[in-house]
Design a protein around this nucleic acid. Structure first.
Lengths: 241, 241
DNA sequence: GAATTATAGATGTCTAGACAACATAATATT
DNA sequence: AATATTATGTTGTCTAGACATCTATAATTC
């Protein structure tokens, strides 16, 4: 198990060993790992070496200690769960679903007042309006209305929208996407939406409205989504300040 | 400088000492701190103790090491937090509403399996179960079921719960609340919930399940909430990574 | 039976070394 | 003068213990 001839430090070998126990589900979240003394006997190493391995895994969020009791497996790696801002495509991939999309409408139109306000532009300024059905594993997941100010996001096409909009904005337009504010509420499906989402009328839907900003504080995207309540749960991690 | 009679660990005293050097700008970003051997002589402690202090500061982002050269002051403490994790009371205040609460049930009971799993405790371990109606401007806003492991959150009373639970945990129990994972979904009100929330049956509700963690990765709270869909919107900010 | 007191086992802190690996500067060799 | 070598100082890894503190359980006492 431990190779003393290896240039890989012993504490690191022990780290890998424990991580593998977690990944193979030999150890599950909440389970106690063997005590430090047990590891010293198992691997014939000093306790400080074992502690170095365990301390690293504690710092990485794999384990947590309880004085006088033992050391336990955490739920997930923290960094991994502190999820970033992503689009629909990345979101679905993370959930292990195949993302898809069907554009219902793509046009350049003058902005309505409510949309203009949220994009920090004037009423009747040109905005791209994109209406889509979002699919996951080929089944409807959400209805989506996107609004993008044409003076800022230039040269948009259906092609780009269907591939990766965020990559286009960051790579081609050289703009830096920074953060988004999302408002989430519960609602019921109307008849026409129900039909498109293939759910009954008056079924629960998750209404998500997102305003996405560049690093200069300017909004470049407004997305109004209606997710099927039976298929979608919104997951968010928050940090105490 | 180092007080050996103090119950405060020596490594922690050294940490504070180094942090103070940085804060008073006796040490600036890029500067090398004294070598580990110099510290052992200055404080008359073993090198492992010095290393424990420095390792902690490296993990917290204050310092970085260079093998064979030395240890240096970092540019800045990394990891700025995005948004505050708060309880119901703070949340309502931010929205300009008067928070209120009515406890329907407060008891110490053996944990059910599903709850135990999410709190990383064993089935039948004691948990505080608190059922509340949450009010905003004296009107029902949400139904809330809270579960807290009694072996960790000790001495809980209705009084504490009604005032500020988080303050009690951080100030009295000296535990550090770190982050929470929340799962949000859309649902419909059942008959009994509808009555308590004073809304019609089958009205939209926002179902929020929150798992709150300490800084060691251990969960200390599980909250299942049902918010009135007509009164509550969940707002979250996300940062692009 | 209930409360109190040991006891065993876990993590927390600390010691006084040892040798390895790496970086740099001083010294010796070519 | 350029190149090797050596010396020195740094962090990296590791040992074999010690005692403290906390938890949970077993044993004892009331």
């Amino acid at each position: 198990m431990i190779d003393r001839e290896s240039p890989v430090p012993i504490y690191y070998q022990i780290e890998e060993y424990i991580k593998q126990l977690i990944e193979t589900e030999a150890l599950n979240p909440g389970d106690a790992i063997p005590s430090e003394r047990e590891f010293t006997e198992q691997f014939k190493v000093s306790r400080m070496t074992v502690r170095q391995a365990i301390t690293n895994l504690v710092n990485e969020g794999y384990l947590f200690r309880q004085k006088g009791k033992g050391t336990y497996v955490s739920n997930q790696k923290i960094e991994q769960t502190l999820q970033g801002l992503t689009g629909f495509t990345e979101d679905m991939k993370k959930r292990g679903l195949k993302p898809g999309s069907k554009i219902l409408d793509f046009k350049l139109a003058p902005a309505e007042l409510s949309v203009a306000k949220q994009l920090y532009i004037n009423e009747h300024d040109p905005v791209y309006e994109i209406k889509r059905i979002r699919l996951a594993d080929d089944l409807p997941m959400a209805l989506e209305m996107s609004y993008l100010p044409a003076n800022l996001i230039k040269g948009l096409t259906e092609e780009i929208v269907n591939n990766s909009l965020y990559e286009y904005i960051e790579d081609n337009l050289q703009l830096k996407i920074d953060y988004a504010t999302q408002v989430i509420e519960s609602s019921l499906s109307h008849e026409d939406e129900a039909k498109l989402l293939q759910i009954p009328k008056n079924a629960p839907i998750l209404l998500i409205q997102r305003q996405t900003f560049l690093d200069n504080g300017q909004p470049f995207e407004l997305v109004k989504s209606k997710y099927r309540g039976d298929r979608y749960k919104f997951v968010v991690d928050m940090k105490r300040v």
